[in-house]
Design a protein around this nucleic acid. Structure first.
Lengths: 191, 191
DNA sequence: CCTTTAGCCTACAGCCTGTAGACAGCCTGC
DNA sequence: GCAGGCTGTCTACAGGCTGTAGGCTAAAGG
């Protein structure tokens, strides 16, 4: 009756990540995961501390994977080429793995996800390097880029563009061009 | 024993909106609201259909209020002045009413929130009118602006800027300037 | 007054979380 | 080859939330 199902923290997390993509990050619960694994809910508490812990693990793994994807996309590129590769990689990741993307969007304890998060922002900073911005402006550019990509992908994945023309892909292409232009003609800070 | 508490759909929604700001949109439940109103959970089911309905009502009301705030901020302004008023109004609303802001960010049935949502995007479009963009580019500009403001506010309210320098307000000012510049020097579409 | 309406109640079924303790399969040492 | 310990999964349960059913009573209208 108690045949081993081969659960480990890692296997549980992997299954949770898949579940998040299948049903949405917010719908990941201990019970739902147990059903999918063919196991009683209580069994999972030996491996994760609870629903919150489960979700945190999904977030950390998703951030790591996003970092991998960005690193791969940026290898050997610079300037507008790098910018397009970066933003397209983020959008691709979000569209292909909606649950994981949602997971990267929830604030998570710095102690647990700090490294993965810092890696992503370092990669973004690297992608902008070819634009030759003044050093003190780089952080603003990273935030602009991060905010815009984040916001767009969020609106797109939640269907915000579904009922208006033209389609999201067209705006995405134009927005990338505008961002590239803005980075090349970065205005002085005359405060 | 059954003294009337004076509940109506409207009063319930107002209380729910306040609760959202106090504890976060995701934490709004029938039970939590009943506790706050000093009433049994079942009593609320005479006024709202359930937790989903409750949250939808919060979203609709928040979108309407956001529209009001934007309309007020934009009255009598144009160009960069209008742009700054617009983005500042959104950011202010989000900071002052975090729960309501979250509520505006969840996708909601078009039939229920369509008007309020359309009003917000119409106001944004109006704010950009002074920049004299080509008509077919306006939608892209609205989406760029919406995405950027959305993404920034989202990251800011979830504490994403808390552990890096300089502070969010500085980046916000710079980003507004960059957006203004991008709108004034909108690149041609050479696809 | 007295009836009707409508608001709030209690009770309950069902699901989810998280804890405690029982029990079975696997590994280790001998 | 086997005894004993460990580890993983189980059942059982307490507590909370959702949503339904049906009862009771305060207010409104004739």
């Amino acid at each position: 009756m108690a045949a081993r199902a081969g659960l480990t923290v890692d296997a549980v997390t992997t299954a949770a990540v898949d579940l998040a993509d299948a049903v949405g990050f917010e719908q990941v619960t201990v019970s739902a995961l147990a059903r999918r694994l063919g196991v009683q809910p209580a069994s999972l508490y030996s491996h994760v501390r609870g629903t919150d812990d489960l979700r945190t693990r999904i977030s950390v793994r998703a951030l790591e994977q996003l970092g991998d994807a960005l690193a791969l996309a940026l290898a050997g590129r610079a300037g507008r080429d790098a910018l397009e590769a970066l933003v397209d990689a983020v959008r691709d990741y979000a569209r292909r793995h909606p649950g994981r993307w949602q997971a990267t969007q929830v604030p998570v304890d710095v102690a647990q996800a700090g490294d993965a998060g810092r890696r992503v922002s370092a990669l973004m900073r690297g992608a902008l390097h070819g634009y030759g911005l003044p050093p003190q402006e780089e952080v603003h550019a990273v935030r602009l880029l991060g905010s815009t990509v984040n916001g767009f992908v969020r609106i797109e994945t939640s269907g915000g563009f579904d009922h208006s023309r033209p389609d999201a892909a067209t705006s995405w292409r134009r927005m990338t061009a505008v961002l590239d232009s803005a980075l090349r003609h970065w205005p002085d800070d005359d405060t």
